[in-house]
Write a protein that binds this DNA or RNA. Structure first.
Lengths: 139, 139
DNA sequence: ATTGAAACGGCCCCACC
DNA sequence: GGTGGGGCCGTTTCAAT
């Protein structure tokens, strides 16, 4: 279903998702048309779910990034999911195993913003906050 | 430094980082040249750090995604950072506040692979594993 | 900092293998 | 499933503002 060439294409897109099909073709020895066709198929099969930009949030005025381990109150999962779009601060959110059954990555302006954000979360459950100090991949 | 137009460009790239400069220009009422120049400056200023592809790891044969909260042994931070590139399974890794001072997202093939991975981590510290059950943004 | 124009290169479709 | 070509569209550069 996904062969070695597809993997190479994906590797190339991992490095830089804006890489042109011509460039990818050169790297893996395939014509641009073929690369395009394979990428199209990977998108159709939802192996590729989208293309993201990696930002420096600090430089955009969002100086605080935190992880929140969240213990949902019983029966609150559905309403929490429904309300998710009211929290633009939530960048990623997953259900996980453990007593804290929700994990989220949250991007905030400052500590006041964090405080207000946590206050809004308290309706749904019990948050435990971890500040992100540094990205070890950036060092 | 980063003005309203830059924000609009970034919003557009957040939705799809492969969006062409022509298309972005149409959306925000700017010529392709100007969009390109602004993106170039955002890249140079490292506001934009890169362009990623969002993958369905399950469909690529990596059926297990986990978060690991990691309590580094005293004095092991430097060597752990130096050895990071020996763990291709580690997708993201951050220093965080709390007794578990490292957080990582790890992509694995199966439970056996997880077991082997954790065994290799034990040199550096004490891991606590949380399986990712679902991405709530996907629902 | 933005623009339009021109040259270049990539994308896309389709016919063919 | 891969290729090659023609037309179209996007990108890049640059002079002008």
């Amino acid at each position: 279903m996904v062969d070695a060439l597809d993997f190479k294409i994906i590797e190339s897109l991992k490095v830089n998702s804006r890489t042109s099909f011509v460039e990818i073709g050169k790297q893996i020895g395939l014509s641009p048309s073929s690369v395009r066709e394979r990428v199209q198929k990977l998108e159709d099969a939802e192996v590729i779910k989208g293309y993201n930009v990696k930002l420096n949030n600090k430089k955009l005025g969002f100086g605080l990034e935190v992880f929140i381990m969240f213990k949902l109150f019983s029966g609150k999962l559905q309403i929490f999911c429904d309300d998710l779009n009211r929290f633009p601060e939530i960048y990623e959110v997953y259900r996980i195993t453990g007593t804290h059954n929700i994990f989220m990555k949250v991007v905030l302006i400052d500590q006041l913003h964090l405080q207000q954000f946590i206050d809004r979360l308290l309706v749904y459950g019990e948050p435990t906050t971890h500040l992100i100090l540094s990205d070890l991949k950036d060092l």
